[in-house]
Computed example of a mutant assay.
Amino acid sequence: MGNVPSSPSRPTDSRGPGQVRAVGELTRDDHVAATVTTGLLRRPDVAFLAMSDDCPDYRLMA
């Protein structure tokens, strides 16, 4: 899978909004988004960060 960070970080901390936007573009199709999300949530650190975010940025869902 390439270069995977050794510890989880929030997308805006080290990767920048450009990469978050790029992932959003790649997952516009609902089936693709559901498949990718399922895979990401199987990663315990990712699931923990996603579920502990008490203020999600709904602007990314545009």
Results as ranks from 00 to 15, higher is better:
Val46Leu: 02
Asp54Gly: 15
Leu41Pro: 01
Ser9Arg: 07
Leu26Trp: 07
Arg59Ser: 15
Pro5Ser: 11
Met51Asp: 09
Pro8Gly: 03
Ser9Lys: 05
Arg10Asp: 11
Ser6Ile: 09
Arg28Tyr: 05
Glu25Gly: 05
Val23Lys: 03
Ser6Trp: 01
Val4Lys: 06
Ser14Met: 03
Arg28Ala: 12
Ser52Leu: 12
Leu60Gly: 14
Asp13Arg: 12
Ala22Ile: 03
Ser7Gly: 10
Thr38Asn: 07
Ser7Cys: 07
Val4Asp: 02
Pro5Arg: 09
Val4Pro: 00
Ala22Met: 06
Leu60Val: 14
Thr27Tyr: 00
Pro44Glu: 08
Ala33Phe: 06
Asp57Phe: 06
Ser6Asn: 09
Ala22Arg: 07
Asp53Thr: 08
Val32Asn: 01
Arg42Phe: 05
Thr38Ile: 04
Ala50Thr: 05
Thr37Ser: 15
Ser6Glu: 10
Pro11Thr: 12
Val23Tyr: 02
Ala47Trp: 02
Arg15Trp: 09
Asp13Asn: 13
Asn3Arg: 14
Val32His: 02
Ala50Ile: 07
Arg15Asn: 05
Ser14Leu: 10
Leu60Glu: 15
Ala33Thr: 03
Asp57Lys: 09
Arg10Pro: 00
Arg21Trp: 05
Asp29His: 05
Arg59Met: 13
Thr38Ser: 08
Pro44Asp: 11
Arg15Val: 10
Val4Gln: 08
Met61Trp: 03
Leu49Lys: 00
Ala47Val: 02
Ala47Asn: 04
Ala62Asp: 14
Phe48Pro: 00
Thr38Met: 06
Pro17Met: 11
Ser9Leu: 08
Ser6Ala: 12
Val23Leu: 12
Val20Asp: 00
Thr37Tyr: 09
Arg21Glu: 11
Val36Gly: 02
Leu40Ser: 06
Gly18Lys: 10
